[in-house]
Write a protein that binds this DNA or RNA. Sequence first.
DNA 1: CTGAAAGCGCTAACAG
DNA 2: CTGTTAGCGCTTTCAG
Lengths: 349, 349
Amino acid sequence: MSKDSPNAASPSPARQRRSSDQVTLSQVAQAAGVSPITASRALNNPDKVSDSARLSVLQAVEQLGYVPNLVAGSLASSRSRLIAVIVPSLINSVFVEVIKGLQETLEAEGYQILLGNTDYDLDREYQLVRTFLGWSCSALVTAGLRHNKACHTLLANWDHPIMEVMELGKGMDLNVGLDHVAAGRCMADHLLDKGYRQIVYVGARLSQDYRASMRYEGHKAVLKEKGIDAPLLELDTLGSLQAGAEGLAQVLVQYPHTQAIHFANDDLAAGALLAAQRQGLSVPGDIAIAGFNGLPLGQHVTPQLTTILSPREEMGRLAAKELIQRLSGKNVYRRQHDVGFTLQTGGST
Amino acid sequence: MSKDSPNAASPSPARQRRSSDQVTLSQVAQAAGVSPITASRALNNPDKVSDSARLSVLQAVEQLGYVPNLVAGSLASSRSRLIAVIVPSLINSVFVEVIKGLQETLEAEGYQILLGNTDYDLDREYQLVRTFLGWSCSALVTAGLRHNKACHTLLANWDHPIMEVMELGKGMDLNVGLDHVAAGRCMADHLLDKGYRQIVYVGARLSQDYRASMRYEGHKAVLKEKGIDAPLLELDTLGSLQAGAEGLAQVLVQYPHTQAIHFANDDLAAGALLAAQRQGLSVPGDIAIAGFNGLPLGQHVTPQLTTILSPREEMGRLAAKELIQRLSGKNVYRRQHDVGFTLQTGGST
DNA sequence: CTGAAAGCGCTAACAG
DNA sequence: CTGTTAGCGCTTTCAG
């Protein structure tokens, strides 16, 4: 009268589930002549198992072609080794470089990246965060410190590490980035040093790329301190070489006496520089051009682009290292890391 | 004498698991006054539930701040809405553009991307595939048709869609890409048309970037047909503007009579073109330069770079669409899509 | 349209 | 070092 007897007139009828043909850990254990939990330990905590047990388990794994079901493991342990990474854009190479730094460091530690793209939409970010929390991610990385209210609430109540990268400020947990206002000031200082007084700041979609507008704030502050106007030209197209060329054209029309253009990034700046070249304008003779990011491109155009170099891959690597520290139980304090930036003076100013 | 009585002297002592404070679907159901399964249906199959039930469930979700546990759902249903995407590099913007196309299409359908980077290492690819299969991914996308044997076996026995992108050929399942040999032929034809006869092909790490070497094969075949030598210069550094500049320098030394350089990609070609500019070499007067990819950069340098445009984001979008078709049960046939390429003639040749 | 029961495959907790 | 037991939170199956 065993409960499991197939013929028993038990109240619960035999209910079958479509069992996938996947090899399970129990099968491995059986083949190895140990209990499932020992097989589990042989794979996840090899030290806590005898050599002979470990060996026969590994052998059985090989033989049966066992692939661990990570979903089941995560549910049971409520740990996933999944790291959510949320960026506003993949077109902008800047974020990709941060992802690269994150990825090479995290993957080496056995973490996997779950990638989300908000397209600069904070509501989208909230949706992504919800989804990712549902995957019991071990940690979450977002580009930027700004979130909508729902997202903020959700994250504030989440008890895993949160890493906010790119900019520096009052974050939710961990923070690795640089001071964009200071970067804007730095470049403005440089342009003033060089003797330019008629300076236009050109950016693209600043309401979205608010870090670029922080740089403009720094830029403007410096000029205001000297009593100099800081006109702003905002382009409607995304930052790109093409947009930079258009930016140059618009500046020449709207502000004909301009001596220097401070572009929000190197894509725009290089686009303008190459366009100037095509039009026979001398840089910096007719007009000086500066950018931000320190993309390789800027170092290969003639004249070399004056820009501010930000350590993007390094930012990703550092963020990943901090997270790994946290996830291994160390470093429980909130931490903020300023990765800094470097003014790179080229011939374009 | 209830089994669950906390004071019962039952043989199984009360074993507690650290229950996370997470709100569960059962709690939602209870708050809504329905059974868990009805709550589940209200969220996943809204049509199969009465309006009143759906409403009270959604209300309870809101009130309790319920976040679905996707891990548990996946385990129970063995479906995950996770798509594994494996690329060989994130530095090379080409793959990022494909990812972007995939991502915008997949995310719109509620799929999430699990990102892996092999660094051009097929063993690493195998490891990633194993891990990703463990997540019960709904489908897998890899860049390229080459896998090691273990990986091939694993994938051959996997019963979910597999999409191989970038190149065209005999794939495992679905395939979206372009013919790289033909692309190489196309550019070689163009260079011959223009009257060049001393042509060097310059690539970087061709054993890794085997698609570039397929293009070289096409290039070589065309030249051989005309009885013309097709010297190859292989750089040891990764493809970049810097490497392109070095490539130019090496060609000028090793093959001083060279009339044209066919570079494996636009990064190299643009790097060479900008370097030529700095050195006062005339392009194409002193030396002609051609690339591959159709990066925006090539259209902004002077002279414009002759290149072959490949529709990368489009490739990602198409791949995603095909996968979605397959995942919704349609389109059960093996499919191959040639996205083609376009010769873009610039002033550099 | 709704519900009860039975797992998905694995690991935490406890006991030997 | 090894095993037993009981879930993780959800969805499937079957039955109303």
